Computed example of a mutant assay.
Amino acid sequence: MAWSAADVPTQNGRVAVVTGANSGLGLETAKVLAARGATVVLACRDPKRAAAAAGVVGKQGGTAELLALDLASLDSVRAAAAELRERFDRVDLLFNNAGVMFPAYGKTADGFELQLGTNHLGHFAFTGLVLDRLLEVPGSRVVVVASLVHRFARGGMNFDDLQSERRYSRIGAYGQSKLANLLFVYELQRRLAAAEARTVAVAAHPGCSSTELTRHLPAWMQRASRVLVEPLLAQPAEQGALPSLRAATDAQAQGGQYYGPRGFQQTRGAPQLVRSTPVSYDTAAQQRLWTVSQELTGVGFPV
């Protein structure tokens, strides 16, 4: 039988942090967790939209808390992590969900290419700064949301031009950032397992889901997507959130696994175990990216 939101067990007494929870996949994830009784921390960049989302999430039955977090600024990441640690002595679930997709070339406040800096480096730093709050909780999980577009990084991480300063492609840079998400989660799980931690790291992707991520595309590409892609392949955001929810709450899920839709080319359908591309399982690349990420962010990990 297909796994659905109805299969999410009770989350009473649990604390879940969801980055980018003001809309799309993050909001749908937060709504389900709140409906199961969790305290859900909406870690968002835009305070007005976050407050509106909190109103929606709060109606589901759980508790919605707000946390200001701009993943494109390490100062904001450090401040958010410090505030989270002050307000909560435990975190059961961390969803690294927020992201940007296909913007024109730009840089974060710290000079990183915008997509890599937001989608990977910001989450890497935030995870490292709050991980000890999860390590104290049996059954806690870090869920990293990747993407089908990681397949575009067929040659692996371009460590020679990590910040896309020599050549920039909107799709190529996004694919690199999503491959980085997978390299990160697999290396994190290896370290957690070596430390015999009670926390595991799991990956997920939403397939082709209707969200606001396409807002950075040129207008003609947005129109083409709405006319040609979404009617054939896209699924609603609430369906796209299911792989992340399964990765976080299914009792059978294990560290280092990857969940995605089971339908055509993993674009839509109920969540199931899937495989990422061979380059994502390259342990040397995982370890190299980890080292580079620590150097760029200045953030270490307790494992």
Score class of each variant (00 low, 15 high):
Lys59Leu: 11
Gly24Trp: 05
Lys59Ala: 15
Gln163Leu: 10
Thr283Met: 07
Ser76Glu: 03
Thr63Asn: 05
Arg78Met: 04
Phe301Met: 03
Thr29Val: 01
Phe95Gly: 01
Asp70Cys: 01
Phe124Gly: 11
Arg275Ser: 13
Pro261Arg: 10
Arg87Ile: 01
Asp70Leu: 05
Gln235Ser: 10
Val303Ile: 14
Phe301Glu: 04
Phe159Cys: 04
Ala51Ile: 00
Gly122Lys: 09
Val40Phe: 10
Val202Met: 14
Ala224Lys: 01
Gly117Asp: 08
Thr297Phe: 09
Gly263Lys: 13
Ser276Lys: 03
Ser164Pro: 01
Tyr259Ala: 12
Leu162Gly: 01
Leu121Ile: 10
Asp250His: 11
Ala35Glu: 11
Arg151Ala: 11
Tyr168Pro: 13
Leu66Thr: 08
Val299Asp: 09
Gly139Asn: 12
Gln254Trp: 05
Ala68Asn: 12
Leu67Asn: 02
Gly172Val: 04
Val8Tyr: 05
Val130Ala: 03
Gln257Lys: 05
Ala219Tyr: 07
Gln115Tyr: 08
Leu74Met: 12
Gln163Trp: 05
Asp161Ser: 13
Leu114Phe: 03
Val279Tyr: 03
Arg49Asp: 05
Phe124Val: 02
Val17Arg: 01
Leu148Asn: 14
Ala195Phe: 07
Arg36Asp: 02
Val303Phe: 07
Ser280Arg: 02
Ala173Met: 07
Ala35Phe: 00
Ala153Tyr: 08
Gln115Trp: 07
Ala98Thr: 00
Leu27Val: 01
Thr39Ile: 08
Trp290Ser: 03
Leu148Glu: 13
Gln265Met: 15
Arg78Leu: 03
Thr63Arg: 12
Thr291Asp: 06
Ala251Glu: 15
Thr29Asn: 01
Thr10Ile: 01
Glu28Phe: 01
Leu84Asn: 13
Ala82Gln: 15
Arg262Gln: 12
Asp110Val: 15
Ser210Arg: 14
Arg141Pro: 10
Leu74Gln: 11
Thr39Leu: 04
Ala153Phe: 07
Gly172Trp: 10
Val143Ser: 13
